[in-house]
Amino acid sequence: MTRWGMVIDLARCIGCNACTVACKTENGTPPDHYWARVYTEERGTFPDTKVTYVPALCNHCEDAPCVTVCPTGASHQRADGIVLVDRDKCIGCRACMVACPYGNRFFLRKRDLKTGYYGERTAYEDAKWKWFVGGTVTKCTFCVHRVDKGLEPACVVTCPTEARIFGDLADPESRPSVLIRKRNGKQPLAEMGTNPSVYYVE
């Protein structure tokens, strides 16, 4: 059985946020909904400082607390591990947002869809925002519409340094599986017991 996952190579990420923009363009997410984004992590004190860019997205956790707590069945997990929200079932109780340790869910207020990024809605926003329902929660879909057609997520194909590597974690010979093995891939907040499908290598 396929289990889609991703490895993020922190040694390669240059913090260009191309993935952030690619996700916004592909999915047309409303303002402040960053399904893909890049944290800036600063360590040390001047002059001995180090900046690491840490790309983040929904981890499509195997034991996803967001799915467990959802009272309506709107949050659900497909057999291939992708965690999705059914916008027609969600009641906007936001229990999933509180339960997700990673801050990867976003509440879409009804008023947020009234105006576009720049005040008036553009034709692009009109077209893309048909997919969003005010008063519900949104999250990264692993670009399920692309994956189901055999394509990789938009953030993966856009990344100029190939810092995001997508593949089947259930296949021991897939690129992500090999990278996790060879470079000691680590899951974010593994102590939470969520078993994320996203790993980081440094």
């Binding site: 959802c70 009272p71 309506t72 079932k89 009641i91 906007g92 008063g135 519900t136």
Partner: peptide, 16 residues
């Protein structure tokens, strides 16, 4: 966010 769907809240009693 969607109070009109309130009754759906009883669906996932096994886990929620």
């Amino acid at each position: 966010g969607r109070p009109e769907r309130f009754l759906r809240v009883i669906v996932r009693w096994r886990t929620s």
